[in-house]
């Protein structure tokens, strides 16, 4: 339906030729933009509903008061994924978890999953690569966060937290206050959830349009298989190179996926692309500086090192599966 609309608009109204690169590029731009905006809004909306009923305070309460034998890592990764990610919230969250007596490993799992699996990333993946690739992405992002948290928890890194965080941890107490269930009926919450979802779409709209704009241009003009000669699956250094390049960079998932989509269409293996994407949105220099408030450089180094390694491994894994 969206494709028909895009065809009608670009070829019918604008009168562009279906066979020209310009026609293909403009059509791709409209089709992708509309599809992704609809997807992003729907996913944010569903996540907003889940969040209204399971706020993060409730998760903390639950994790702090139950012995879960490893399931806590899964819950942390899951909630990290469905909680709307705002980089500025990661520090208060981190301290809030540590203060609440939640183990460092579980907290780090949450911290990794939160940007890695987000409503924006899921919507962009679904729109660009389809259901199967999105599932691979979400499942691997969740598993990767859990494994990273588990590994880090066995490294006994508590001494490398900032001093004042250590102090907060020492006097940590399971908050006695029960999470108060809000009694607001569902219908009354809908306007707020809708507004919030629209806010998420509006916040990244510009990045989506720029990303799709660049993607569309490349889509129309770069020949098939163009990148294959540089980053094909046979080149063993393709994955580590893509990841190492991507770690210091930060780009919004909204802007980067449409470009990666074109990379894949023109011959880069999906595993390399997913690894690149994870490194871009999961780790970045701005994030490191933010974490400096709660961690020593040494801990940040170990944290980034472990996650980078796992991203590289999952990149190889996907390339090998396909």
């Amino acid at each position: 339906m969206i494709q028909q609309f895009a065809d009608w608009l670009v070829y019918g109204i604008f009168g562009l030729d279906t066979a020209t690169p310009l026609g293909t590029a403009v059509n791709f731009f409209f089709y992708d933009s509309i599809k992704i905006i609809i997807l992003l809004f729907s996913i944010s909306f569903v996540m907003g509903i889940i969040n209204a009923y399971f706020p993060i305070e409730r998760l903390r309460q639950y994790l702090a008061t139950h012995k879960l034998y490893g399931l806590d890592y899964f819950l942390a990764a899951l909630f990290g994924g469905i909680t709307p990610f705002c980089s500025c919230s990661s520090v208060p969250l981190f301290i809030g978890f540590v203060k609440g007596g939640i183990p460092l490993g579980v907290t780090l799992t949450f911290l990794i999953a939160s940007p890695l699996v987000s409503e924006v990333a899921v919507a962009m993946f679904l729109g660009s690569f389809g259901v199967k690739a999105t599932l691979i992405y979400v499942v691997s992002g969740t598993v990767l966060s859990m494994i990273a948290g588990l590994i880090l928890s066995h490294m006994h890194l508590e001494p490398y937290l900032s001093d004042w965080v250590k102090a907060a941890q020492a006097q940590s107490s399971v908050q006695s206050q029960q999470w108060e269930a809000e009694k607001t009926p569902f219908i009354k919450r809908l306007p707020a959830i809708t507004r919030e979802s629209w806010g998420i779409v509006r916040g990244v709209l510009l990045y989506i349009l720029i990303g799709i704009g660049i993607g569309a241009t490349m889509h129309g003009y770069v020949p098939e298989g163009f990148f294959e000669q540089y980053l094909s699956a046979e080149n063993w250094w393709g994955v580590p190179l893509a990841v190492v390049l991507a770690v210091p960079m930060y780009a919004n998932a909204a802007g980067i996926v449409p470009i990666i989509e074109v990379f894949v269409a023109k011959g880069i293996p999906l595993g390399t692309a997913i690894a690149f994407m994870m490194a871009i949105i999961g780790l970045s220099i701005p994030e490191a500086t933010m974490l400096k408030k709660v961690m020593t450089w040494r801990l940040i180094g170990i944290f980034f090192g472990v996650v980078t390694l796992l991203i590289i491994i999952s990149g190889y894994l996907f390339n090998w599966i396909r």
Partner: peptide
Amino acid sequence: IMEIMNYNILSTPAVVVDGEVKTKGY
């Protein structure tokens, strides 16, 4: 951040009116 954490919140922005946290996270 240290002052923010005294209010025992997990997500920002939060609005505090006369010492009481009224909204958080949106």
